[in-house]
């Protein structure tokens, strides 16, 4: 918090979802960068070097898991904390997310309080 606002890159294909959650994060004092699919998200991550990346798992094109893997491979982005979000109701999705390199995993629909708590914890580390 000492060096101004933290930058969060939010990769999500659903515009309404982006709108609502971005608004929430902005209200909580974050700078929010948005990307509508995986490829654009990866580009922005390299370019903007956000402090944290929040991304959806199920997306057209390359999915969230693949994005996570690529982020972890790239030396520029590999240190950035990643929070994945999924609407799928299966236990093993979380395992897959962690296996791909995510630091946290949240389920849709978002519990704003829980999400914010997780984001803050990751940013303080």
């Amino acid at each position: 918090m000492t060096e101004g606002k933290k930058k969060i890159l939010f990769i999500e294909d659903e515009p309404d979802q982006r709108l609502i959650l971005a608004m929430r994060l902005k209200k909580d004092g974050f700078t929010v960068l948005e990307a509508e699919n995986g490829l654009k998200g990866l580009e922005k991550a390299v370019k903007e070097k956000p402090d944290l990346i929040l991304l959806d798992i199920i997306m057209p094109g390359i999915d969230g898991l693949e994005v996570t893997r690529r982020l972890r491979k790239n030396p520029v982005t590999k240190g950035i904390p990643i929070v994945t979000a999924t609407a799928a109701g299966l236990d093993d999705v979380e395992h897959k997310c962690f296996a791909a390199g995510a630091d946290e995993c949240v389920r849709k629909p978002y519990d704003s309080a829980e999400l914010l708590a997780k984001i803050r914890r990751l940013l303080e580390k």
């Binding site: 659903e14 699919n37 057209p60 999915d63």
Partner: peptide, 9 residues
């Protein structure tokens, strides 16, 4: 099956 990128959802 996944939709092609760019298509509506």
């Amino acid at each position: 099956f996944s939709w092609p990128a760019g298509a509506g959802k």
